[in-house]
């Protein structure tokens, strides 16, 4: 019991392993290089979006616009980035910068992040519609090549997941600046008193979130080969669920990058698993919710054992 509460990463791993075992049991053919890649393919952009969401939750905010933002990034990737890479790259940089500015503004004007990001989601969505009024566009060839590469031993999806988890774990959990950012979530006043500029730190957190949002959009286009203004709208809630599934908490700067990636994998797997169960698509969202609640209930159970105080 105390093992689970001490190492909060264990429960996400256990949930993923359990779900994976059941999936293998129901559909043994997934237990292969090709099968695993199919299972987790779409988890890569979700994992990147989840990391973006985690960076925002880490500083005690929440981002309700990440889905629309990823859609916009996908549309840019399928149009400008394909036709004129330089302009495409500049637009992506501008998107990241605008995310950083949004973070600075939220802090400087003491606005609720939930409102600002929700409002901005309509801006992102409008821009995406402006770029691609109807589904279309083409993935840049190099992006397609990266997303369909076949590394030896492990399928691309799992290699990418490990890479994302490793890099973000180093950045957030090990590096000094990540520690300070988590400190902002834990006790912003303390960080400010130590001489840090909270506006810059928030801008950094949001800017990093923007970077991962852009990466998510690009990864998505690389997989689907075309884009659509609404392609990633459901990522908003998926990413929040992924962070929480991965052992993160909404407040207090308690997040786990590796956990967030595992949470995203779990969510993607849950969708496949429910299809294997031949569950009608009408019920799938509800069933996904049930899985989410089960995992969270388990966490509450394990953590609650330590007693409510001290």
């Amino acid at each position: 019991m105390t093992l689970f509460s001490r190492y909060r990463i264990l429960l996400p791993i256990a949930s993923l392993a359990l779900l994976l075992a059941v999936t293998f049991y129901v559909q043994p053919r997934t237990m292969s290089y090709f099968g695993l890649n199919l299972l987790f393919n779409l988890a890569v952009p979700i994992a990147l979006a989840t990391i973006a969401q985690m960076l925002i939750i880490m500083v005690n905010d929440i981002d309700l616009g990440i889905g629309a933002f990823v859609s916009l990034a996908a549309c840019v990737a399928a149009t400008f980035l394909e036709q004129s890479p330089l302009i495409g790259a500049m637009i992506m940089a501008a998107l990241i910068l605008s995310y950083a500015l949004m973070g600075a503004m939220i802090h400087a004007l003491a606005l609720p992040a939930i409102v600002v990001t929700l409002g901005m989601s309509f801006v992102w969505g409008g821009l995406a519609l402006f770029l691609l009024p109807s589904p279309g566009g083409t993935s840049p060839a190099w992006l397609r090549a990266i997303m369909t590469v076949k590394p030896p031993l492990m399928p691309m999806a799992l290699v990418a997941a490990c890479l994302i988890a490793g890099v973000t774990h180093w950045l957030i959990a090990r590096a000094g600046i990540g520690t300070v950012l988590r400190g902002v979530g834990g006790n912003a006043d303390a960080v400010r008193r130590a001489g840090w500029s909270l506006v810059r730190l928030k801008a950094l957190a949001y800017g990093l979130a923007g970077l991962f949002g852009v990466l998510a959009g690009m990864a998505l286009v690389g997989l689907t080969t075309s884009a659509d203004a609404n392609i990633a709208l459901r990522y908003t809630l998926l990413s929040i669920a992924g962070v929480i599934l991965g052992g993160g908490e909404f407040t207090g700067g308690k997040v786990s990058p590796a956990g967030a990636v595992i949470g995203a994998l779990t969510l993607a797997l849950a969708a496949s698993f429910l299809s294997f169960m031949r569950l009608s698509p009408d019920w799938q969202i509800g069933a996904q919710g049930a899985i989410l609640i089960a995992v969270l209930a388990a966490r509450l159970l394990f953590n609650g054992r330590d007693g409510a105080r001290r």
Partner: peptide, 30 residues
């Protein structure tokens, strides 16, 4: 200053809290 309301980040370890107070502590093995 040692503040009346403590200025520690509860989600961080002791060493990490010291890192926040000591901005120049950088590099490997900080």
């Amino acid at each position: 200053s040692v503040f009346q309301e403590l200025s520690l980040c509860p989600n961080l370890s002791l060493a990490e809290n010291l890192r926040i107070a000591h901005a120049d502590l950088r590099g490997w093995g900080w």
